[in-house]
Nucleic acid binder design. Structure first.
Length: 621
RNA sequence: GGGGGCGUAGCUCAAUGGUUAGAGUCCCAGAUUGUCGAUCUGGUUGUUGCGGGUUCGAAUCCCGUCGCUCCCGCCA
């Protein structure tokens, strides 16, 4: 059917108009970060948010902001819309058309990339009006408002410069990780989000099945088994920016519910092969996105046992110069009864040497002793190497020979102090580690502007469960025990180490990984030691159990936390500052109102009946 | 599940158990021609989280409770 004449005529009119306007997009010809003195004289159109307004009565400045930057708009009182602009509320979305003008030299703003020019408004329109804001957007993070409000109005908070840049940094980091992994010959995979519950590990998020009454999917805590199965499928090198779901309580550096890992798995590799890839990728990303110095590969390797001894932690902050020492041999014949009796019961003595703090006032030492007691230490002895010799509560029990040994072991001299923790080994490590961290922080001893990386290696395969006294996996049950089947058959299980490793940056654990066990026999034996029967293993890990029978390659991997990496790169101490739409500490999304109740109909379809806990008693009844 | 901190105007915070709970900011009105967190003048804004108690009198002290946050537990 031919087009009617009126339609053709109308079409021509529209086309002619468009032709005239063809250089002018209806919203913008440039972004708010684009204009420079080179564009002076040009007729342009900008759209963005009214960030700030400076009203001089006969002259009005508007800072127009978009994703790309800020441009100063000038409105003169001759403009028919001058009064409308005076009344504009901040964060209104507007479109402004006009000429780019060079600023007078004395009015240039050197703090702004677009500070040499301004846009003189000739036409103006409102695209999106704005009510008074619940948040203050142009201030600092602290001025932004309470976190509850920030989370509820997250889309507003995300306009703030720091948060906006953090989210962009995250985007760039992830793009870079992908590029680097692909460069190392890895392929990216997707693995199921609706999967089955795994018996080990954290609590699962469950999803009821409509089709299978009474049955549930679980969201993956990590794609652990899938990535191993991809290795068995022969794909050789796997990676994924993988969402992981764990129903565990939050911390400042741990988002509740969900988080992302750079999940990696490789076939036919040793631990060192995994380290080489990860070191290259991590060092690359940290030097790409931060001006802070970052340790160059190879990163330090510290055996788990040494980490616990010298740092009192399996995630040591190497920026802290304090090195804990075992000084049991110094005190083996000590006259100090407290140490003696603890050591007779198998305890240890740990020394925490600190340089140059002999001049601290008495209150400093008293407060530290108090702190030590608050975290479960019996006490905190110390020696001060002052100008008039060695002093402190322990001094009168020390022989000159013991003093010399101590000086040699701890490398201390005049002006230095050594604190002593005496307890059973596990406690002594924990307390000494806590005090090391506290001293480092309180005395400002940490190296500045540097990322210190290390690998913690040789984790024990098993540990004793403190509640049950039973042998349990200390980390990942899929790890290869060092010594293989032989070790499982002949060694004391508590002495068996695993090819299990952590990568740590500035005291933050970025990731755990392992060379996996890929033999069914070893799997069964390892689980047997941890109290599982062959049938348990077969029913709980049906895929891996079967797959190990059909030609499984040796393989291993790791999964650095993406959120934590971005956190370190952004210099943020709270993980919510690097997540676009985070949940609060109680795992609620205040913006979307999740979790929420659902309708009876939905529950019926899912064959789910809600069994609520008893409501708490009303107060004052 | 346990412990600490916080809770006063939309927001940031102040207020010795004692006058009508204040200031900055936001918002509203006015002034203002070169600002860039513009400035100046004036104004509105309150269930002091909620519920009890002590007291002549409570934002303030006590008890409980709720919310947020940090930590412990938990996180193969």
């Amino acid at each position: 059917m031919p087009l009617s004449l009126p339609f053709v005529r109308a079409f021509r009119i529209v086309r002619d108009l468009l032709d005239k306007e063809v250089i002018m997009h209806i919203y913008r010809t440039h972004t708010c970060g684009a204009l420079r003195k080179e564009q002076a004289g040009l007729e342009v159109r900008l759209s963005g948010w009214v960030f700030r307004k400076r009203d001089h009565g006969q002259l009005l400045f508007i800072d127009l902001r978009d994703h790309y930057g800020l441009t100063q708009i000038v409105v003169y009182p001759e403009s028919p819309f001058f009064e409308d602009c005076q009344k504009l509320r901040l964060e209104t979305v507007i479109t402004v058309t006009g000429q780019v003008k060079m600023r007078e030299p004395e009015t240039v703003n050197p703090g702004l990339p677009t500070g040499e020019i301004e846009l003189v408004a000739a036409t103006f329109s409102v695209q999106g009006s704005c009510e008074p804001l619940p948040l203050y957007l142009s201030g600092t993070e602290e001025e932004a408002g309470p976190e509850e409000t920030r989370l509820k109005y997250r889309y507003l908070d995300l306009r703030r410069d720091t948060l906006h840049r953090n989210i962009l940094l995250r985007s760039s980091v992830i793009a870079s990780l992908r590029r680097r992994m692909i460069g190392h010959g890895f392929n990216e995979f997707q693995t199921p989000i609706l999967t089955s519950s795994s018996p080990e590990g954290a609590r699962d998020y469950l999803v009821p099945s409509r089709v299978h009454p009474g049955k549930f999917y679980a969201l993956p805590q990590a794609p652990q088994q899938f990535k191993q199965l991809l290795m068995i499928a022969g794909f050789d090198r796997y990676f994924q920016i993988a969402p992981c779901f764990r129903d565990e309580d939050a911390r400042a550096d741990r988002s509740p519910g969900e988080f992302y890992q750079l999940d990696i798995e490789m076939s036919f590799v040793t631990q060192e092969d995994v380290f080489a890839v990860v070191e290259d990728v991590i060092h690359g990303v940290f030097t790409e996105f931060s001006r802070q110095a970052a340790d160059k590969p190879p990163f330090r390797r510290i055996a788990y046992q040494d980490a616990m001894l010298h740092y009192g932690s399996d995630k040591p902050d190497l920026r802290n110069p304090i090195l804990i020492q075992d000084v049991g041999d110094v005190f083996k014949d000590t006259g100090f009864k407290v140490f003696r009796s603890v050591m007779e019961k198998g305890g240890v003595v740990r020394a925490i040497p600190v340089k140059g703090i002999a001049g601290q006032p008495r209150s400093f030492f008293d407060k530290l002793v108090e702190h030590a007691q608050s975290i479960g230490a019996g006490g905190l002895a110390y020696l001060v190497w002052g100008p008039e010799g060695v002093k402190g509560p322990l001094a009168k029990f020390m022989t000159p020979a013991e003093g010399e040994k101590l000086v040699a072991k701890c490398g201390v001299g005049t002006g230095d102090v050594v604190f002593f923790v005496c307890d059973q080994e596990k406690n002594a490590s924990r307390i000494a580690g806590d005090i090391r961290t506290k001293l480092g922080r309180d005395l400002d001893l940490l190296e500045k502007n540097v990322y210190r990386f290390c690998w913690i290696v040789d984790f024990p395969m098993f540990e004793t469960d403190e509640e049950t006294g039973q042998l349990a996996f200390s980390h990942n049950p899929f790890s290869m025990p060092q010594g293989g089947m032989d070790a499982l058959m002949t060694q004391d299980p508590l002495t068996i180490k695993a090819f299990q490793y952590d990568i740590v940056c500035n005291g933050t654990e970025l990731s755990s990984g392992a060379i996996r066990n890929h033999s069914q026999d070893v799997m069964v034996k390892a689980f047997e030691l941890a109290g599982y029967t062959r049938e348990d293993v077969e029913s709980k890990f049906p895929a891996l159990f079967q797959a190990f029978k059909f030609g499984a390659p040796p393989h291993g991997g790791i999964a650095p936390g993406v959120d934590r990496m971005v956190m370190l790169l952004a210099g943020e101490s709270n993980i919510r500052e690097v997540i676009a739409f985070p949940m609060n500490q109680k795992a609620q999304d205040l913006m979307m109102g999740a979790p929420a109740t659902v309708t009876e109909k939905q529950l019926r379809e899912l064959h789910v009946k809600v069994n609520l806990p008893q409501p708490k008693k009303e107060p004052g009844v």
